[in-house]
């Protein structure tokens, strides 16, 4: 594939093209959620789709998160392949009953009779001065729940390719799109197909430390690795991509090579996915470690509005670089 046939696409456009392709491929697929139609999507992801597919398949909903997520579950049980857009993860808490008590539990409590092939997309993340109620990163918290899969596409390629794989999955899949990534551009071949959702990816190779991250924090980790490389420290950067089921093989193998691990997570530290990853390293790679596992997470506050406070609360490039230097320097 040469560059001149590559397409420049934003993350937003990648999600939109993925939805468009899925709608064309399978007439059981439809999109519903708040403002997905006439408004064009809160983040303009679905802009133009109403004109192409009409109001039956690009379905505006009232502000009834529990109602329309539950309706999505019912439609999935009834033979459709719904993509339900919950505007942001913050509002998904109003649908937590349907996601956790119904979608995640139906297959098990029916003894395998009823699977729920629903895809629920939502924006996530902080960093835009939107204060506590619009800045949450709860994907790690959802990853606690057996019965659902939790995807966290960071790259434009994953934003484009994960949706179809999720729609083909027989079980409920939650896709978390970090709102800070929607404007990010990437180059993709026009005929790019679906991508796997089972494996983490090494986005930068290195021998001195494994930085394990996902979503928007991935790019902060990559930026930090760039700075560190200039100082002679080669950091390996892992993009988890999927938080449940967790591909532990990729990060355990990496730690076995680098002997150090830092987890960078926009979620909070206590009872978090970063705690889970740290535990798994302790359980399965303890004797590979030359230094304690470290974590860089958000400060344990509901995110504040003021810019300087919010920046201080979130993981940042300089903090990642400083922590890596400490880890590599003090335990040579």
């Amino acid at each position: 594939m040469t560059n001149d046939v590559m397409q420049k696409l934003t993350y937003r456009e990648a999600v939109r093209e993925a939805i468009r392709e899925a709608m064309k491929k399978d007439d059981r697929v439809f999109l519903m959620g708040e403002d997905v139609g006439r408004y064009g999507g809160c983040f303009a992801v679905s802009k133009g789709l109403l004109e192409d597919f009409g109001p039956t398949r690009i379905r505006d909903t009232p502000l009834s998160e529990s109602g329309f997520v539950g309706a999505g579950i019912g439609a999935a049980l009834g033979g459709m392949r719904p993509i339900v857009e919950v505007m942001t993860v913050n509002f998904s808490l109003l649908a937590a009953d349907q996601i956790i008590n119904n979608a995640a539990a139906y297959l098990h409590m029916s003894g395998g009779l009823f699977n729920v092939p629903i895809v629920i997309r939502m924006a996530t993340g902080g960093g835009r001065q939107l204060a506590a109620q619009h800045s949450r990163s709860l994907e790690g918290w959802y990853a606690h729940i057996p019965g659902i899969k939790v995807l966290s596409p960071a790259t434009v390629e994953d934003a484009r390719g994960m949706l179809w794989t999720a729609l083909e999955d027989p079980d409920p899949v939650l896709i978390f799109e970090n709102a800070g990534l929607y404007n990010m551009e990437g180059m993709l071949p026009p005929d790019i197909g679906p991508v796997d959702i089972d494996k983490a990816r090494i986005r930068r190779e290195g021998k001195d430390i494994s930085i394990i991250s996902y979503s928007a924090s991935l790019f902060k980790s990559l930026d930090a690795a760039e700075i560190l490389a200039k100082e002679g420290i080669e950091a390996e950067v892992i993009d988890l991509r999927t938080l449940r089921p967790l591909d532990e093989t990729t990060f355990l193998d990496s730690v076995a090579r680098t002997h150090r691990a830092l987890i960078v997570d926009e979620g909070w530290r206590s009872g978090s996915i970063s705690a889970e990853i740290s535990s798994r390293i302790m359980e399965s790679a303890f004797y590979e470690l030359d230094a304690p596992v470290e974590r860089l997470c958000s400060a344990e506050v509901p995110l504040p509005y003021a810019r300087h406070l919010e920046e201080a609360a979130l993981p940042q490039v300089n903090k990642i670089a400083a922590l890596v230097k400490k880890m590599v320097g003090t335990h040579g």
Partner: peptide
């Protein structure tokens, strides 16, 4: 076993029927 939890599911089953 969640009071009210089945109502949205019923709405969705009916939506699937209507769309099909």
């Amino acid at each position: 076993a969640i009071v009210g939890g089945g109502l949205p599911i019923a709405v969705g089953l009916a939506l699937a029927d209507k769309m099909q």
